[in-house]
Design a protein around this nucleic acid. Sequence first.
RNA 1: GGAGAGAUGGCCGAGUGGUCGAAGGCGCUCCCCUGCUAAGGGAGUAUGGGGCUUAAACUCCAUCGAGGGUUCGAAUCCCUCUCUCUCCGCCA
Length: 447
Amino acid sequence: MCVRQQKWEMRSQKFMLDIKLLRQSIDSIALQLKSRNVAIDVAHFTALEEERKTLQVKMQALREERNKRSKAVGKTKAGGDSIEAAKTSLKQLSDELKVIEGQFATVEEALDVFLAQLPNLPHESVPIGKNESDNQIIRTVGEPCQFSFIAKDHVALGAHHGWMDFETATKLSGSRYVVLRGPLARLQRALIQFMLDLHTREHGYQEIYVPYIANVECLFGTAQLPKFQEDFFALHGNATQQYLIPTSEVTVTNTVRDQILDCAQLPIKYACYSSCFRSEAGTYGKDMQGMLRQHQFEKVELVQIVRPETSYQALQALTQHAEVVLQRLELPYRVMLLSTGDMGFAAAKTYDLEVWLPGQERYREISSCSNTEAFQARRMKARFRDEAGHIDYVHTLNGSGLAVGRTLIAILENYQDERGRVHIPKALQPYMNLEVIDCEENWYAHR
RNA sequence: GGAGAGAUGGCCGAGUGGUCGAAGGCGCUCCCCUGCUAAGGGAGUAUGGGGCUUAAACUCCAUCGAGGGUUCGAAUCCCUCUCUCUCCGCCA
């Protein structure tokens, strides 16, 4: 028996777009993907697909014959007659089948390579553009504050007493790490607690804790693999390949992998705090100062598993949920609708939240909220059964609610005063048990 | 880390080379019967893909943890891996 066919079928679900849609309307898909700067070789695909079909039909016919005749052999043997002649001719058939199966496997591999390059199709409402300069500002909330003094950046504000210590972090690990002490370590912890409480108490998310190490299937399911292997850390010395999660989206979303959910379970809404690990390969020289871009950072992630017809409503809601964090912290921000050229591989539509950073005098990304529609679900085989018993893929969404390190930066820079003190936003004060971080204070005395 | 036992459908569980996609039970759905309830009778109840179709029907292929091998034929035999359980040791 050969299991190659199953492998192929699994892939056809796992990869990207709906394989049936692709077969039917490759031309219109090519057109849509062009807006994402992806050129696809339609002729190549069509040829492969033709070959695949021919071979599959032939292979199945041969198998059918083999199965039938093998069963007949069994009967003959049970009847006590000789089966030698039948064995010889069946051996030929079996060999022929193996050749076809080999050819089929070759075509399948070529299709693999082709399909793996295809990102999700953008939603029709997504602006067509080359890169981030074509993103649309949806709304701006709050005013960038005007200081009567020259605003410091978070590196300067955190430097007192080694509260934000990059030198020690470099000694411990390397570049792009940070050590936080005293009030800043507490601020980070307070932010995590604040965000989780908000989402679980007011937005209806269930808190979830997941592993920070994920297997290949997870990374594949959420589409970090196979294309973006260099973006995160692989663990060595393991028999099985494992990776540090670049976001808890990976493990949280994969909790529903290989499942047929009951429609009564939907929507599923998870809020997850985790550390995140990114190699930041190819970002040399970018944001080298400060803790804006780190190999290890903290994030509260929001994930929703929903019915297809509700996923765009859910995207609006999820984006709102992330925005509320900024609103409660009274940080000025704006909402960007990403253009086709700037979206992530798995996303059909993405809103970025950008917070105002006085130290840089510009807005910086602090959250990214995406609807991947069934793109991840297909790869994960995450489905649901509706009231009528029909099975369909779920839609998955994810968004940061928020990136904790960057929120900490935003608070330092937006809430600084002329003396270099940092005031704590009202909403956060109960969590900090403090109103102001005073650089003239001895923090060892603080309880 | 050492020793052993396992992995079968929604669940339990039979099945050591051939009509096994898989007995039996439970659960679930529909129907029948019974004055309600309970009990009873009957039928159905996996997933993915291909062919043919407007569609359905039909039919074929694949799937018994994963991958590979032996064979005309594999849930069943061999190899590798993963996971689970029990005992011992160690440990936050």
